[in-house]
């Protein structure tokens, strides 16, 4: 059993804690804490979307920040992806996933916004073709 602590933990497993320090309730505490944080963040998101107390152009950015925070809460408290030394492989895989997601999302949005701005409307193009 002792050699097992040298392996990375599987995702979703909590890092190996010596049996003497492990309490029966600690797992319950982690999930409950995660649930509370997620509820708070969710309620804040709904409030931000519906309030007029916040400068309107800042609302989408605020919502994105809240969503990323909540995804972080889910990762840490529910999936138990931590920065501990025995979770390195999981974190590296996650980092790669996040990189790809970032490239796909930002890449598509930037390219499509750019095209929207610079391409001629279809009707204008037709006019040009007719004239020449």
């Amino acid at each position: 059993m002792t050699t097992e602590t040298h392996w990375d933990v599987a995702p979703g497993e909590r890092p190996a804690i010596p049996a003497s320090e492990r309490k029966a309730s600690s797992g319950l505490l982690v999930y409950t804490l995660g649930l509370l944080l997620a509820v708070i963040l969710t309620i804040t998101s709904f409030w931000v979307a519906n309030t007029s107390a916040i400068w309107a152009p800042g609302v989408p950015a605020g919502l994105v920040v809240l969503a990323i925070a909540q995804m972080g809460v889910h990762l840490v408290f529910f999936l138990h992806i931590t920065t501990g030394p025995d979770s390195t492989n999981n974190v590296l895989a996650l980092a790669f996933g996040v990189l790809i997601v970032f490239l796909v999302l930002v890449g598509s949005l930037v390219i499509m916004a750019n095209l929207n701005e610079n391409m001629m409307a279809h009707t204008e193009l037709m006019d040009l073709q007719v004239r020449h």
Partner: peptide, 27 residues
């Protein structure tokens, strides 16, 4: 541990697929 890690890779690839759907929705 191997099974958990493999499934974690699958989940990440699933999330990458969803990111493409999100990108098309946002556009």
């Amino acid at each position: 541990i191997i099974a958990g890690f493999g499934f974690w890779i699958f989940l990440l690839s699933d999330i990458v697929m969803f990111s493409a759907l999100f990108a098309s929705y946002a556009v």
